[in-house]
């Protein structure tokens, strides 16, 4: 395994009396494609929120690229090179698509590469072109279809120039063909050197995408390994299908 980019050690999160995550350990290597699965309510999104700084973890440590992240605000994590897409797309509704992309370029990408600032306009066009939304650059998000919204969400996450992309159910609710489109996009991004954690319910997509699979059940990690082995593991099958 190459250098670890993200290290999660003993992570725990409680909401009042409810324990959402217990002692989660995870290492993600640079350039890896990791699939994170688990039944509804198993803590996947809570884990993402703890990683990205939207929530504060109560226990454990998260290290990204050698930086300890505990207590760090979400925007600083984004500037370090950690980007996410939201499960339900959350575009900036009063801004055009181009302006949506411009925000992370101005606030994350150009902050990191201080000194050699990239031209926001060019970068913005390149990103919209990558997801095929360039012709709609001057429209508002309300004019987009569901899959276009997902693509915008991914383009905006990529606009911060991340080293790690966390795609939280980027394909939920899409058709068979649309899933393939997003999948192709994510694999292309990975080919450009971006480490990706994919959270997904669509098993076909997860299996096609992941080099390694991690399974969360009731806030605990129950499996971690090669996808084909993992999905045959009895406790994973039990968690998904019942025993």
């Amino acid at each position: 395994m190459s250098n670890p980019l993200l290290t999660v050690a003993g992570l725990g999160k409680r909401f009042g009396g409810f324990t959402a995550l217990t002692d989660v350990n995870l290492i993600v290597a640079e350039g890896e494609r990791l699939g994170l699965i688990g039944p509804n309510g198993s803590g996947k999104s809570t884990l993402v929120n703890c990683l990205c700084g939207t929530l504060r973890n109560d226990m454990g440590k998260v290290t990204f690229d050698g930086h300890a992240l505990n207590g760090m605000s979400a925007h600083r994590r984004t500037r370090l090179g950690m980007a996410r897409s939201f499960q339900l797309p959350r575009p900036f509704t009063t801004l055009t698509l181009a302006e949506n992309i411009r925000v992370p370029i101005l606030y994350a990408a150009n902050v990191k590469t201080s000194g050699q600032a990239i031209d926001p306009r060019q970068r913005c066009e390149a990103l919209l072109d990558m997801v095929g939304l360039l012709p709609k650059a001057d429209l508002k998000p309300a004019d987009l279809t569901q899959i276009e919204m997902r693509k915008l969400e991914l383009a905006r996450a990529m606009a911060s120039d991340p080293r790690l992309l966390i795609a939280d159910e980027a394909m939920a609710g899409l058709s068979h063909q649309e899933v393939d489109e997003i999948l192709e996009l994510l694999i292309k991004l990975n080919g450009q050197g971006v480490t990706i954690i994919m959270i997904e319910h669509i098993m076909r997509a997860v299996l096609a995408f992941s080099q390694r699979l991690v399974v969360l059940v009731a806030g605990r990690k129950i499996a971690d390994g090669v996808p084909q082995d993992i999905i045959r593991q009895p406790d994973v099958v039990a968690a998904y299908l019942g025993s």
Partner: peptide
């Protein structure tokens, strides 16, 4: 641009840096 992002969605703004 930062102000507009805050107005539209504070969480997404924070995630955008």
């Amino acid at each position: 641009f930062g102000f507009s992002a805050i107005r539209d969605d504070e969480g997404a703004a924070e995630a955008s840096g």
